[in-house]
Every structure is written in C-alpha cells, then in structure tokens.
Amino acid sequence: MDCFYAAIEVRDRPALRGKPVGVGGTRDRRGVLTTCNYEAREFGVHSAMPTFMALQRCPNLIVLPTRFDVYRREAAVIRGILHRFSLLIEPLSLDEAYVDLTAHPGAPAAVAKVIRDMIFQKTKLTSSAGIGPNKLVAKIASEVNKPNGQLEVKPEEVPDFMEKLPVRKIWGIGAKTERKLEELRVKTCGELQSFSRPELVDLFGKFGIDLYDLCRGIDHRPVEPDRPRKSLSTEETFSIDLTTLEQCEERLAELFEQLMADLAQKETTRTITKIFVKLKFADFTRTTVERAGLEPSLDAFRSLLAEGFARTGKNVRLLGLGVRFAEPEKTSAQLPLL
C-alpha cells in the first residue's frame, strides 16, 4: 500500500488532500512519524523521523495521531481481496504482503492490476506491486513505480534488472555492509557479481553464501502463508532522549497497550515463553532484559525496564518491549509424568 496510514487519514479527511500529512507522535510528546504522504516526502520528511525534525523541514506538516484499529480494519479488507487470487499469502506487515500467483491462470501483471483496482474500489486507497520470479525480485520491483504503479520483471529480464541495481536494495544489506562494499568500489549488484562465493563468504561470513545468489536475483525462499512468528514486539525511538526511569515507565505503558493490541490481533493462542525489554542508550549501546516464565503484564515489563535502566544509568534513546513464543508442539510417544 502507498503510505498506508497517511493515505487512510487523508481519505477520511478530504480537507487534507494535497497537503503534507504525517502520522505519528506529536512534537511536544517527542514523537516519531510512523509514515507520511508524498506531499510531505517532497520536503525530505520520511517515516521514522522525529516529528520535531519533520516540522523543521516542513513547517506546514499536519501531524495526526495513529488509529491502529482503523488501519487493521482496512488491512483485513485488503487481505480478503488477496485471498480471492491465491491461498499463498505471506504478510510482511499490515500493508505489505507476498502473494504467490504461480497457480493463477491469468497473466501475473494483469492479475496484479486487477487486484490493485479492486483494492482501490473497496478502500479508495492506492497500492503498488512488483511482479517477479521470486520474493527478492518482486519486492524490489514493487518499489520502482511507487506510488500507484507496478513493474513486472520477467525471468529473462532478471539479469538486466539486477545489473544496475544498487546493492542497498538487497535484503540483508544495511548501512554497514554498504559501506564495506563501497570501500571495495562496489555500488551495484552487477559489480558485486564479479566476486566468487568463497570470496563473499570471506568478506561477509555466512551471509556471503546467500549474497552470491541474491545479487544475481536468485532467491529460493517460498512464500510461506503461516510461517510461525518467533516473537512479537514493538518499539519507539524518541526524538529527545529519556533521562529518568519515570519517563521510561510512561512510554512503556503506551507501548504495552500497543503490544497487547498486536497480540490480540495476531497471536491469540500461542504460548508465550519469554518477555523482554530492549533499551538503546544515547551512545547507541544497547541492552536487552529477557525473562522466561512471566506473564506479559505491565508490572512484569516494568520490573524488566527498571533492571535494564539500572544497568547503565545512561539516557534512553529507544525503548522496546515484546514477547517470544514457544515452538509449535511436536507429538511424541513419551508419556508425561508431570
């Protein structure tokens, strides 16, 4: 979906059309933008940007609070549409999903267009699509003609498509790897292709094995409709660092609400094995406090937060909390004792 949350807000408030709009926390509450529309992006505003910074770049930016219940409702409608075309759907987030169209008789690009039209009819929201022989290519292609566009990369077009592609577009390559590659004068996937697999393993460890394939547009991961989630978490980076435990506790309570809502929506039956609180400090060091056997309650998270906060006493830049799930059960012939 194209700037999903912001698009929903603009749709529901027609007066905002054409104006720069962001969704997220407000400036005086040291909020961060969850997303913003294309009008705002022209000012250099982007998602995950602290609201105060966004307002510096775009003083007319209209910042709205998030309404996750509404976004979830829309996401459910969209997922319903996708299900008419394939049973193999792997959601990445509320507004993004892989759809395996191998079994669909229609031409994939045409099917994608139909899906997008249907989504627009039902929700008045625009979306973009990438059509490719695997998840890697499809995902990268989906970004090319955003917003409200699509791109098909046919199998025979993959080599050309990858050749000029910046390495950063490959999943798993972040700022650090990109810098390392720049030192080797590698900017595009085509340039990366001149390395042998052993050379890549030397440079990047295990990731090198996959990287050799990825830079050629080869990706064997299947679309997995119900890949069991290992954990569920939520976090927030603050525009102004938190200095006291009380401040952290205040934010913790908000994040806790969000996590509980997520849990209720996404994972209602799984056994929770651990809960954790993650802290990133002003100097970018981080710590995680994890505890097994505790129910995810605000009190329990509070005690973990206190422990993590006490470890350094530094100002807090990011606060996150989450739960880890048990592996799905295997049946056994062993009889239980207790």
């Binding site: 056997g293 048990a326 062993q334 009889l335 004792l337 207790l338």
Partner: peptide
C-alpha cells in the same frame, strides 16, 4: 524454557531434611 520453574533444582528444607528434586516433566 516454557517450563521455567523446572529449569533448576528444587531445594526443599523440611523436617530436618534437605530434599533435592529435578524433573523435566517426563522423569524425576
């Protein structure tokens, strides 16, 4: 890890006896 209380040895001090117990739910 899902059976957190079993991830250790029980030290039960009772009636002038220390009883040590360990179990994983299938043996004890």
């Amino acid at each position: 890890e899902t059976r957190y209380v079993l991830n250790g040895v029980l030290f039960s001090f009772k009636e002038n006896k220390l009883t040590l117990v360990a179990t994983d739910g299938r043996r004890l």
